[in-house]
Amino acid sequence: MKQYLRPVQRFIYFLLKNHAIADDLTQEVFVKVYKHMGSFRNESSVKTWIYKIAVNEVKMHRRSSWFRRFILFGNINEELAGYQDDSEMSAPEQEEVLRVVLSLSPNYREVILLHYYQDLTVAEVATILGISHDAVYTKLHRAKKQLKERLEKEGFAWT
């Protein structure tokens, strides 16, 4: 279970852009995972199950008034600056990519993070988000299109 801890924490952080909240929600996710391990029915992989719990925790948090008051109006650059302190990114491009990914709408950011950053298949993403494979493909396509457009504005060129 430990191998999922950091990926889930990073996933939540990239969705919410707040270290403290990401840590708190990760705790909640894994407490639930441990407590409900007995009722896990093997209908999906453990990894998918954990991410599903994480997505639900984030959704619940987004619905909270605390999130609406402080995060939606929070300073994204400040959060990214926090990330840069930890950064082992060698290339400024990679840093810029992440920055643009984090600027996507939560809907698109979610699929990009799950598919590319958490290395989950389209089928797994579909299970986690409770949507069809086609819907995942559509979201990925649109997210990447938006990402490309934004990166182009930053001077990226495509082959």
Partner: peptide, 14 residues
Amino acid sequence: MDIDKLLRDSARVV
């Protein structure tokens, strides 16, 4: 540059 490769590289670093 391929967008998929760019994302995977970014993910590896992150």
